[in-house]
Nucleic acid binder design. Structure first.
Length: 326
DNA sequence: ATGGTTTTTACTGCGTC
DNA sequence: GACGCGGTAAAAACCAT
């Protein structure tokens, strides 16, 4: 049986909402690696961690105009934008439609030459219009991807990968019948895993506007249609985040990683939830290094039940002891 | 749709602070 | 007595067939 790739978990409403708020509050402000404070350097367009110097975000967009105006008259003459468009219409009311009746404004039939010309106009109009609609679609999706990525503390490279995946989905006409948000979420989920920075489905569900069921459906669909190569998440990839959220030190992280390697060697990881494995490894590592964490604390940050942690960590320790006698 | 595997829920007993 | 931990049984969820 293959490694678990998709799981959904049912749990109490109160716990879920409570955690969501906590998570969003500290992840938008702190460094994903060391939890240090982030500062934004406007001039260089970078967001940098004050503790470890990690550049979390670079090439940020300066959304101001590229011109300068010193009084209102100059502003009027230099500004190139007009009244806001409406989002109520799918094309913001800006596209052109060409009637299908081959008649002119007076209702008279067109000559065959004119008809041919109109046909050509219709063709090209349609081409530009669909292209524009794809652009708009893309823009909205990229905004959504950006929003979720920053809520989850995912680096720029992941967003770029996600946008590439989304573009491909769009080009291959995978969108009809599916929501933009759903495909955007699926793209980001896949990208995060491809880039070795996975987030669990529960974490995505917390920041996405899409229900988990649609997420998994869409994700599967996109992966299959695009033939994306997404290898099962490596449990080790979850370790640093759990360790930092539990405020444990590097020693625990190293120990947890080595436990996971041992488990992988012993082949007891197949079919098990990577998140559960990582959580159990962190718990076991904390015990081994004499640091106090409870199973429920680990379970909370990892969104895993205590029973699963118990089962996994028991197996991890068995492997550890077994190796001594090998 | 079904069956096999994994995870969760719920409940219990034991030891410790 | 509350808490952390370990175990079990049954239910639910997931995935492949």
């Amino acid at each position: 049986m293959s490694e678990t790739t998709i799981k959904s978990y049912v749990r109490g409403e109160d716990r879920t909402t409570e955690q969501t708020e906590e998570r969003e509050a500290d992840e938008t402000l702190s460094c994903p690696e060391c939890s240090g404070q982030l500062i934004t350097d406007e001039e260089h367009g970078e967001t940098v961690c004050t503790d470890c110097g990690l550049v979390v975000e670079q090439d940020a967009v300066d959304r101001g105009p590229e011109w300068r105006a010193f009084d209102s008259a100059q502003r009027d003459s230099k500004s190139r934008v007009g009244a806001p468009t409406t989002k109520m219409m799918h094309d913001k009311g800006l596209s052109t439609n060409i009637g299908w009746q081959n008649r002119d404004a007076y209702g008279k039939a067109l000559s065959s030459n004119q008809r041919r010309q109109m046909q050509r106009l219709r063709t090209w109009n349609e081409r530009f219009r669909t292209r524009d609609s794809k652009e708009r679609n893309l823009k909205q999706a990229l905004g959504e991807i950006d929003r979720m990525a920053s809520a989850l503390g995912l680096p720029k490279a992941v967003r770029e990968t996600a946008s590439v995946i989304y573009r491909r989905a769009l080009d291959e006409d995978l969108l009809p019948g599916r929501s933009i948000e759903g495909v955007a979420t699926a793209s980001l989920y896949a990208a995060a895993r491809q880039m070795g920075n996975p987030r669990s489905l529960d974490e995505f569900a917390a920041v996405s506007r899409v229900e988990k069921m649609e997420m998994t459906r869409t994700y599967r669909y996109v992966v299959r249609e695009l033939k994306l190569e997404v290898q099962p998440a490596d449990p080790e990839q979850y370790v640093p985040r759990f360790v930092s959220r539990l405020e444990l030190n590097d020693e625990v992280e190293r120990e947890a990683r080595s436990l996971l390697r041992g488990a992988k060697e012993a082949g007891i990881t197949s079919g098990k939830s990577p998140v559960g494995l990582a959580a159990a490894a962190v718990y076991a590592a904390a015990l081994l290094t004499n640091q106090k964490v409870t199973q429920s604390q680990v379970g909370d940050v990892a969104d895993i039940s205590e029973v699963t942690i118990r089962n996994r960590y028991k197996e991890l320790l068995e492997v550890d002891h077994g190796e001594l006698f090998d």
